[in-house]
Design a binder for these strands. Structure first.
Length: 275
DNA sequence: CAGTTCGCCTGGGGGC
DNA sequence: TGCCCCCAGGCGAACT
């Protein structure tokens, strides 16, 4: 599931590989992928558009085109491929952007991803799709005070809070576990228990962990070839997530997996005792 | 009105 | 081998 670092990597890879390309034609093969437009309007709007800038808010990709914004969210399994026109169109390709001598193809086995097109009358940060999306994890407006205020009178767990895109945009299930581990919080620790220094710690660890993952993704961009999918995945150095039955990297205790608010949750019962 | 559940999807894995 | 069921999970809508 692409989270902030993977989305960042995909965006930078596309920026790197798709310079000076104009969209000649768009083929929507699965219409439910397109959210705020009919597939016909979507296809029509993008013809002759060029990508001028690449932005990201949390897990959303924003392509600033000549006259429009194209917004994409890869959800669970979305990937972009840059492929030759002749290449066989796989079963799970749902949108094709014709770029002349190559194609940008969107692949999504579970069809959870979404795309939107908006004209540029309002700045992209004001768009409907971002109404319930808070500050990106790296946004300078995201401060310790902001986090403290967001948690006032709330009784949700730290993990739920980290996953809630209204407060910090970009963290998913993997990094939420990693951040809890780094901060030594049991995932179900209530945010009501947190002190100012804890919020400080959360912010620092969140950015440190996401940054590390983005750095690792940098190598993906450099090693990208046209036969590679662009999904932002790389050799993740995860400490707890997906590490069930493995010894904790700090204390050697066997990592446990529990279900927390419907999500698979990994943690070290010894290192993460604050509950 | 905030918290919880559901539905969207498909591939993969376990059970039989 | 094959079939059925369940699970994974981001996120918005619908529900309590």
């Amino acid at each position: 599931m692409p989270e902030l670092p993977e989305v960042e990597t995909v965006l930078r890879t596309l920026e790197d590989r798709l310079q000076n390309f104009t969209i000649q034609k768009v083929h929507v093969l699965y219409d439910k992928m397109i959210y705020n437009n009919t597939e016909m309007d979507f296809e029509e709007a993008l013809v002759n558009e060029q990508v001028d800038e690449y932005y990201r808010i949390g897990k959303y990709m924003i392509f600033e085109l000549t006259h429009y914004y194209l917004i994409a969210h890869m959800r669970m399994e979305g990937k972009f491929y840059i492929q030759e026109n002749e290449e066989v169109i796989g079963k799970h390709i749902h949108v094709i952007f014709d770029l002349g001598n190559k194609q940008l193809r969107y692949h999504d086995t579970r069809k959870f991803g979404r795309m939107y097109v908006y004209d540029k009358t309002t700045h992209f940060t004001e768009l409907d799709v971002f109404k319930h999306v808070g500050y990106d994890a790296f946004d300078s407006r995201l401060t310790t005070n902001y986090l403290m205020q967001s948690c006032e009178n709330k009784r949700v767990s730290v993990k739920q809070f980290l996953l809630d895109q209204r407060y910090i945009a970009g963290i998913g299930n993997i990094y939420a576990d990693e951040i809890c581990f780094s901060c030594k919080f049991h995932p179900s620790l209530s945010v009501a228990e947190l002190k100012e220094e804890d919020f400080d710690h959360i912010l620092i660890e969140t950015r440190r962990i996401l940054n590390g993952a983005i750095q690792a993704g940098g190598s993906t961009i450099r090693s990208y070839t046209s036969s590679l999918k662009v999904d932002g995945r790389f050799q993740l150095q995860l400490k707890v997530h997906q590490q069930v039955h493995q010894p904790c990297k700090i204390c050697g205790t066997i990592i446990e997996k529990i279900k927390h608010h419907g999500r698979g949750t990994y943690f070290c019962a010894k290192c993460q005792q604050r509950k």
